[in-house]
């Protein structure tokens, strides 16, 4: 039987109370929401917090809404809510692509977007999705809120920009006209972590690609956004030749390692191929959005 080492537990009744607990207990405190990454790590002694601050009662962090030209998602929003949100599917089909292949329904009933991003696992899907979408994170502490772009949110494997006494409270994604996006993932079995995955988001303006975002998962840290590929795509007309070149660049700008899920060589191949596939679908969806919005 696997049981975590002993710890203290506090159920926060407000964001301020959670922040105060996190500040007081410093490095030894961890936020728990769904717990489906943290509790398994605690069972394996890969994490050993002295205090868990349960934020599941903070319903004020559970929302999906459009404010101005941004979609705002509260950190406690469950995977299931993202998957079932018509608003999310309409603006960001990439999120629904990814959510369909993140774990399984009971896990999606518990897991949250905030927990997914804060776990900072390079194989985690929503981080690559948020990277491709050029999302921004809102981090709250005693001194107020600060906004950190997704590209700067992960500081390395399992490390984030969230400091002691702070919490991720919201994710903001820009809503743009003529937008299309897609996520392509290869997994060994249904609900598994990715062998490799690619997310693409872009807009079409007068037939040319703009606002391109490309993010990869499970091919090493630092691939949540690939500026080299994005620069290649911006301003260009979509074509198979362009997708080919983008895929080649993506496979060069990642650092997969050989493990039980596949060889580094295979994952590099997947990074290129999945980028091409995601590009094709994102462009097709952007084209449909342009027509729908005309």
């Amino acid at each position: 039987m696997q049981v975590p080492a002993s710890f203290d537990y506090q159920r926060a009744q407000s964001v301020d109370e959670a922040l105060e607990l996190l500040r007081r207990h410093g490095e030894e405190a961890r936020v728990v929401a769904g717990g489906h990454s943290l509790l398994p790590m605690m069972k394996l002694r890969l994490a050993g917090p002295e205090l868990l601050v349960d934020i599941n009662e903070l319903h004020e962090l559970d929302y999906i809404e459009v404010v101005g030209d941004e979609l705002r998602v509260g950190a406690l929003t469950r995977h299931r809510a993202l998957l079932e949100s018509e608003l999310v599917g309409r603006h960001f089909p990439i999120v629904h692509d990814a959510e369909k292949v993140i774990a399984d329904p009971p896990v999606r009933n518990r897991g949250t977007i905030g927990g997914s991003l804060c776990q900072a696992d390079p194989s985690e899907d929503l981080s690559a999705v948020c990277g491709a979408l050029h999302a921004r994170t809102v981090i709250r502490g005693a001194a107020g809120e600060r906004i950190v772009p997704m590209a700067d949110f992960h500081r390395g494997p399992y490390e984030t920009a969230v400091g002691v006494g702070e919490m991720l409270v919201e994710v903001r994604i820009p809503v743009r006209p003529g937008a299309g996006s897609a996520y392509e993932k290869v997994e060994r079995k249904a609900g598994d972590w990715a062998v490799a995955a690619a997310g693409v988001a872009l807009t079409l303006r007068e037939g040319r690609i703009a606002d391109a975002g490309v993010g990869l998962a499970a091919v090493g840290a630092g691939a949540l956004e690939l500026p080299a590929v994005q620069d290649l795509l911006d301003g260009r007309e979509p074509s198979e030749a362009l997708y080919e070149e983008a895929g080649r660049l993506a496979s060069e700008h990642c650092s997969p390692v050989t493990d039980s899920r596949g060889s580094a060589e295979y994952k590099r191949h997947l990074a290129g191929e999945l980028t091409r596939r995601a590009l094709r679908r994102a462009v097709a969806r952007a084209g449909a959005a342009v027509e729908r919005e005309a």
């Binding site: 537990y9 159920r11 728990v32 717990g35 489906h36 509790l39 398994p40 868990l52 349960d54 599941n56 329904p105 009971p106 896990v107 009933n109 518990r110």
Partner: peptide, 11 residues
Amino acid sequence: PVKSCTVLAVM
């Protein structure tokens, strides 16, 4: 549905 091996009783 939730997986009760990954939910704390206190939660």
